[in-house]
Amino acid sequence: MTVTPFPELKIRDVHEADRPRERLIRQGSHSLSNQELLAILLRTGTKEESVLSLANRILMNFEKLHALKHATIEEIMEIKGIGEAKAVQLLAAIELGKRLAQKEMDSRFTIRSPEDAAHFLMPEMSPLQQEHFVVLFLNVKNQVLHKQTIFIGSLNASIVHPREIFREAVKRSAASIICAHNHPSGVPTPSPEDIEVTTRLHEAGVIIGIDLIDHIIIGDHQFISLKEKGYF
């Protein structure tokens, strides 16, 4: 017996009140799923596939929504049904979201605990595929004056030199600093190199008079504070 598949549901077949655009207008963007928000950006599907199905395939292709954050136009266009125009629309929306989120985060965020520092950095650093060593420069109120990526690559004491970091701290009139780097493996357990770098930066900070408040290692939505662990 041959089973005839049900035809795929198109947006036009959905009751008008339940369509993503109409629901967004009526209920707000927060009420829509990731699939529905993507469908609005895409606007149309293909002859063979609805826009909702296409949006779902994009999400499945990138597994997690945050993986889209680092997608290139070539990677997006590899998905069947996505041409240059749709890929450009998606990348523009993603970049705008990243800039708005970063602007909000960077507006004199106050660090009161290792959790504050981790939550400030984790959305950006947790998905990275390479190690990034980042320094937060703080004022006397522990507000973030500046954030800077010092280098990208495997952590090594010969690369992370205190001179470069504290020169920037003096330039920014920083009272203290917080260092952070990510482990692409997702496991934030400190390595001997991590501990060595931390010790050197702490000792240099004591001499210069600019405190190293913490060194945060960021994994896959988890972190470790070397200060809390007693490494300095």
Rank of each mutant, 00 (worst) to 15 (best):
R21F: 02
R21I: 03
E22P: 00
E22R: 06
E22H: 04
R23T: 09
R23P: 06
R23V: 09
L24N: 08
L24V: 13
L24K: 12
I25K: 14
I25G: 08
Q27K: 14
Q27C: 11
G28R: 13
G28W: 12
S29T: 06
S31A: 10
S31M: 05
S31V: 06
L32Q: 06
L32W: 04
S33Q: 12
S33N: 11
S33P: 09
S33T: 15
N34Y: 12
Q35P: 02
Q35R: 12
E36W: 10
L37G: 04
L37F: 08
L37A: 12
L37M: 14
L37H: 07
L38C: 06
L38P: 02
A39R: 03
A39E: 03
A39I: 08
I40Y: 02
L42P: 10
L42N: 11
R43C: 12
R43W: 10
T44Q: 14
G45H: 00
T46H: 11
T46N: 12
T46M: 12
T46W: 09
T46P: 09
K47Q: 08
K47M: 05
E48K: 10
E49F: 03
S50P: 09
V51K: 00
V51Q: 01
L52Y: 01
L52N: 00
S53C: 06
S53D: 08
L54H: 06
A55D: 08
A55N: 08
N56L: 05
R57W: 06
R57G: 09
I58L: 10
I58P: 00
I58D: 01
I58E: 01
M60G: 05
N61P: 00
F62H: 11
E63V: 13
E63F: 08
E63H: 11
K64N: 15
K64Q: 15
L65D: 05
L65P: 02
L65F: 09
H66N: 15
A67V: 10
A67P: 01
L68C: 05
K69A: 04
K69L: 04
H70D: 14
H70S: 14
H70E: 14
H70P: 03
A71E: 03
A71C: 07
A71W: 01
T72V: 01
T72C: 00
I73N: 03
I73E: 07
E75Y: 05
E75W: 04
E75D: 12
E75V: 07
I76Q: 09
I76D: 06
M77R: 08
M77K: 09
I79T: 04
I79W: 02
I79P: 01
I79V: 11
G81A: 05
G81H: 03
I82N: 06
G83K: 07
G83H: 06
G83Y: 06
G83T: 08
G83R: 07
E84K: 14
E84Y: 13
A85D: 13
A85Y: 13
A85K: 15
A85P: 05
A85C: 10
